[in-house]
Write a protein that binds this DNA or RNA. Structure first.
Length: 330
DNA sequence: CGAATTTGACCAGCGC
DNA sequence: GCGCTGGTCAAATTCG
């Protein structure tokens, strides 16, 4: 088993865990700044999605807030009508494809192939896009999208103790929740995502000079955890891994601002976090500064209809991005 | 002074 | 069984 920190076109190792890597960023990959601009539509057919630009985030504006949501690019069978639900990932297909791919790369509807297809310009560990995302599920056959299980009951993922104070008895294999990891170039380790977190541990990680910090959502009966570490390959890159699903809105009530298409679909819930990039004057040598702030209303041109996926792929929201990370709720 | 963080100890799981 | 590693606990410490 490899414990190294490496990634290739298809996989990203986070500690000892190898997660399928989904990355396809349209932008200058030689730049330190990777614009979060995604072509999520087949330019040859407005009604289908272009597999060659498979994954990534669908930008949408709702009110003052731009949401980037992992989008339908995962779903090659994406079809044709304008139902907003179809802008979103079929989570089951993600999981199944992800797992299948580890065993059989010949699938023509394969998530990792999609990811690879999206990086066919020769993405390597060196030029991997700065921001990327991955899912992990230990056993897709046991995948249960019951929101109660995904969101946790508050402590079911904590070590339960018997009357003697010892940990849970042996043989009860702990079920790990769905994980979602992404990388962000940031000077700040703990990126603002709208939720409140309490740090409960920090560990040195093998083959990395940087420790991993463990956080738990402070909301009552919310079992969501995340851990944060810096990439040993590029210390300016932060790797954040979420585990579980929030069973509540963000303290800032940002969920209330979700586009109705997301809310009504009930396919996913958040978290969402917002980055403010301050572009350096010389992008070839500077490291972009990433501050953790919520967007302000003046930062966006509120001219994008989130129900209309037809967005100019070259449109660049000025210096500010929001990532929405989507978890299944049904 | 309560909340949040730090940090050493402990435990589970896994490979050998 | 042993050693290694990731993950968590909880007392001590720091912070606001």
């Amino acid at each position: 088993m490899s414990h190294s920190y490496h990634h290739n076109n298809n996989m990203m190792n986070i500690g000892s865990e190898e997660l399928p890597l989904f990355s396809n960023f349209i932008g200058d990959q030689n730049s330190n700044i990777t614009p979060f601009m995604y072509n999520h539509q087949n330019p040859n057919n407005n009604n289908t999605y272009d597999a060659s630009n498979s994954l990534s985030f669908t930008n949408c504006l709702h009110g003052d807030v731009e949401y980037n949501t992992l989008s339908a690019a995962f779903d090659l069978h994406h079809s044709n009508n304008s139902s907003s639900d179809q802008d979103h990932v079929n989570y089951n297909s993600i999981i199944n494809n992800s797992n299948n791919n580890n065993k059989n790369s010949s699938s023509n509807n394969n998530l990792l192939e999609l990811a690879a297809a999206g990086t066919n310009s020769g993405t390597t560990a060196e030029n991997l896009p700065i921001s990327s995302a991955s899912f992990s599920e230990e056993d897709s056959s046991n995948l249960d999208l019951n929101p109660k299980l995904l969101s946790g009951n508050g402590d079911h993922d904590l070590k339960s103790k018997n009357p003697s104070g010892k940990m849970k008895k042996k043989g009860e294999k702990k079920q790990r929740e769905t994980r979602f990891a992404f990388k962000t170039k940031s000077e700040i380790d703990n990126l603002e995502d709208g939720y409140r977190w309490r740090k409960y541990g920090q560990k040195a990680v093998k083959n990395s000079p940087f420790p991993r910090s463990y956080y738990r959502c402070t909301s009552h009966e919310c079992g969501v955890k995340k851990h944060i570490e810096r990439s040993c390959e590029d210390p300016s890159v932060v790797i954040t891994t979420y585990e579980g699903q929030h069973n509540h809105h963000t303290p800032a009530s940002r969920a209330a601002m979700m586009p109705p298409s997301l809310v009504s679909s009930q396919q996913f819930s958040f978290p969402t976090f917002t980055h403010n990039y301050l572009f350096p004057t010389n992008t070839s040598t500077s490291t972009p500064h990433l501050s953790a702030q919520f967007p302000n209303s003046s930062s966006y041109n509120n001219n994008y209809n989130y129900n209309n996926p037809q967005m100019d792929q070259h449109t660049q929201y000025p210096h500010q991005y929001t990532h929405g990370f989507l978890f299944p709720s049904t």
